[in-house]
Amino acid sequence: MARKKIIFVIVEGPSDDEALGMIFSRIYDSRKVYIHIMHGDITTARGVSPANVSSKIGNEIRTYASSNHYGKDDFDQIIHIVDMDGAFIPDEYVVEDRKCTGILYTTTGIFTNNRQGILKRNQQKKANISKLCACQEIWKVPYRMFYMSCNLDHVLYGKQNSTDKDKEYDAFQFARKYKNEIPEFLYFISKSDFSVIGNYKESWEYIKQELHSLQRHTNLGLCFTEQELKDKFIK
């Protein structure tokens, strides 16, 4: 019996896995879903640039494949979920605020006590995201990247500045709500007022404009438009 093809899902942190891992496994139950936690944002990692970002991701996939005796033909696709973090907003909306102890996100600006550091981060993130959203395959495996804006907590729970404790709690509650209600999840992610649905390329052009990368938007619903999912879950 042939083993299941792998859907390699890349997320930034453990709470992202908690929120979406079980749901993805239920949706793609005819394939093997592996959630790969990067423990950070690869698009802003030190030394990562448009010249090497796809190879960095490829290294993560090859390492997993090698340790589990898989080859590239064992992979169905790579799904990469990335937080936007307001990276594409105009520089004037990054505001220096000495009272901030960290980074404060709102739908109208980023407030920080290190404005130059955030501007530098945004520049790197923009360049790497622009490279990846135009990438069609990595390690000869189909690749697509989907965004959460301003971050996953914002899209799934309506919160922009969650603590780690809040992230864990909200992720657990979200997974519990939807793990056995897949049609409801698909409706939530595809039909909400924050869902950016239509053309993949156009969805990326949209999030790069104005303050959209700070506001509540996601194109993750485009991940679930295959006819087999419509036939199986959407009546």
Rank of each mutant, 00 (worst) to 15 (best):
168 E>W: 05
94 V>T: 13
179 K>N: 15
184 E>G: 06
229 L>K: 11
15 S>K: 13
192 S>Y: 02
154 H>S: 15
25 S>C: 07
86 G>Q: 08
30 S>K: 10
141 V>P: 00
224 F>R: 02
13 G>W: 07
81 I>V: 09
27 I>P: 10
223 C>T: 05
31 R>I: 09
177 K>I: 01
54 S>I: 03
162 S>W: 02
235 K>V: 03
188 F>A: 13
198 G>V: 06
116 Q>V: 10
183 P>G: 09
7 I>N: 15
7 I>K: 13
175 A>V: 03
117 G>C: 14
145 M>W: 04
107 T>W: 03
153 D>P: 01
149 S>C: 13
173 Q>C: 05
74 D>A: 02
72 K>D: 09
47 G>M: 03
88 F>T: 02
172 F>K: 15
119 L>T: 12
215 Q>Y: 04
59 N>W: 12
59 N>R: 13
39 H>V: 01
139 W>T: 06
36 H>M: 05
88 F>W: 00
84 M>D: 03
226 E>F: 12
104 L>K: 15
131 K>M: 11
58 G>N: 00
34 Y>A: 01
184 E>Q: 10
59 N>C: 06
148 M>E: 04
115 R>K: 15
219 N>M: 07
234 I>A: 08
15 S>T: 15
224 F>L: 04
69 H>T: 09
155 V>K: 05
12 E>P: 06
160 Q>D: 14
69 H>Y: 04
50 P>N: 14
191 K>T: 07
121 R>M: 13
59 N>H: 14
79 I>D: 03
219 N>K: 08
66 S>C: 08
18 E>Y: 01
123 Q>G: 03
52 N>M: 01
45 A>Y: 13
45 A>F: 14
109 G>Q: 11
36 H>F: 13
100 C>V: 06
223 C>H: 01
96 E>P: 00
43 T>Y: 09
220 L>F: 13
